[in-house]
């Protein structure tokens, strides 16, 4: 009996508590920087596309909503000929972002993607590609250790050791 009255009293006191509701269209909720929202394709610091069309994101996608076609530029760099994400299927799981070896595909804190026409939810490459570096500024895949694609010389990349001269006896 006491506990019932106490419950009622405590419930009544909630009349004077602050409401938790965020009145959405007027007040935007705070979204964390790593919020998994709309998917973008980023560029590196030289404003070149980061994507190398390796298809890992499409392979990782559990709903098969990513579709892309690889192509090779005159400098020998791979890039996607088209890159298409069907957001009416996307579940915003972020597996594509985890799979991406070049930090090209990223999820950003934006969820306001409502459309009246379902077809408008299919985003093409020009809709996805942004002219910024996203969450990893100053990262350039080609400047890391690896093959020379004209961006850096052999042995001059980040985390890369000088090539071993196999002709010498010195250690």
């Amino acid at each position: 009996m006491y506990s019932i009255l106490r419950t009622l009293w405590l419930t009544f006191l909630h009349l004077f508590h602050k409401s938790e509701t965020v009145e959405y269209p007027e007040v935007k909720p705070y979204l964390a920087p790593r919020y998994r929202g709309r998917i973008v394709l980023t560029r590196d610091s030289d404003m070149n596309e980061r994507c190398v069309a390796c298809n890992l994101c499409a392979a990782a996608c559990p709903t098969d909503c990513i579709s892309l076609q690889a192509a090779e530029g005159p400098d020998g760099r791979r890039y996607p000929e088209f890159f298409r994400i069907n957001f009416s299927r996307c579940i915003f799981c972020g597996l594509c972002e985890e799979a991406c070896p070049t930090y090209a595909i990223q999820l950003v804190p934006d969820f306001e993607m409502g459309e009246y026409d379902r077809q408008n939810l299919v985003y093409e490459k020009e809709n996805l590609l942004i002219s910024g570096q996203g969450k990893y500024p100053d990262y350039n895949f080609y400047k890391q250790a690896g093959v020379d694609m004209g961006v850096k010389k052999k042995g001059e990349g980040e985390n890369e050791e000088k090539p071993v001269d196999t002709k010498t006896l010195l250690p």
Partner: peptide, 8 residues
Amino acid sequence: LALWQDRL
């Protein structure tokens, strides 16, 4: 009800 559940 909403007020008592900290809603609007």
